[in-house]
Design a protein around this nucleic acid. Structure first.
Lengths: 148, 148
DNA sequence: TAGAACCTTGGAGTGCACTCCAGGCAAGCG
DNA sequence: CGCTTGCCTGGAGTGCACTCCAAGGTTCTA
């Protein structure tokens, strides 16, 4: 077994992985497209910019993604939802590649992200309150104009 | 008084308006910059694309924003937080300009936005769960490596 | 073994939301 | 009066995150 952090971190998004498109461990790019919802272009681009941790290749050079790659993509998808810039995700991927000595920095990055997410949730709830206020106004005005 | 919807909707973000930079009703662009956090460039751009409802001008052609404009900008800021595309906000502004017959469409737009916001909050909470899971792992591993 | 469907690359293009620039007008101050 | 500061315009530029293209190699099915 490798070191604790390198081993567990890339595939610890959830204790049990979700069901895979095929039960195997070598997926073509189009299988990953179907499973992840990303385009093939985007998957290749992610690899180019260093956001994928070394995708395996067939003997003729075609990509073969592993279950671990799918886990990583699922995690990246979560980070994308938070609005985190891709550059920051690349930074996190680099830290992973650098091994155990980046442990503390990775932890800090995740905690900063958690703080951001909580802030954004609070902002959205504030927005929700404003929307509710306005929608109530519309509802009330319509009721009034209908003589209710 | 004007019609119900035109009158109330542009300034109904909150029952009481927040304290204004000066107590007046004619602000220069730099005052609005200080109050809204937007740049002057962005304010002019908003006006150009139809996202501002007709900003008043001084006798020499300089912009003079009203309290109503500030209210509108605050609402736009809320919408921006939801990730709504600027084009959709422009659409809403157009509906406002068109008057009462767009009432139902405006209401529907706000309700669709509310649904989007709720979805996004749920997504973010899912992401938060993943982050918590990973952060717990980091905390646990560090505790273990310290012999705790 | 032919053809369709898939995969490869580097590099160029797209859409969004700003962001800035050049060149000029205007207002306040010593 | 000159100087600084603020504001005006149309149009060009920026950064991000893809998105697509051309030209060619590979894999699968009939």
């Amino acid at each position: 077994m490798e070191s604790i952090s390198a081993r567990t971190d890339t595939c610890a998004s959830a204790p049990k992985a979700h069901p895979r498109p095929e039960g195997q461990d070598r997926y073509t790019i189009s299988e990953v497209v179907a499973h992840s919802g990303l385009t093939a272009h985007t998957l290749r681009w992610y690899e180019r910019i260093g956001l994928m941790p070394h995708v395996d290749r067939s003997h003729t050079g075609q990509r073969r993604f592993s279950n671990r790659d799918l886990d990583w993509l699922a995690f990246v998808g979560k980070l994308r939802l938070t609005g985190m810039p891709v550059a920051d995700m690349v930074r996190y991927a680099e830290l992973l590649r650098e091994g155990d000595q980046t442990f503390a920095e990775r932890q800090e990055l995740l905690e900063a992200t958690r703080r951001d997410v909580k802030t954004r949730i609070a902002e959205l709830q504030g927005t929700l309150a404003v929307l509710d206020f306005k929608i109530d106004f519309y509802g009330g005005a319509r009721a009034a104009s209908e003589g209710v």
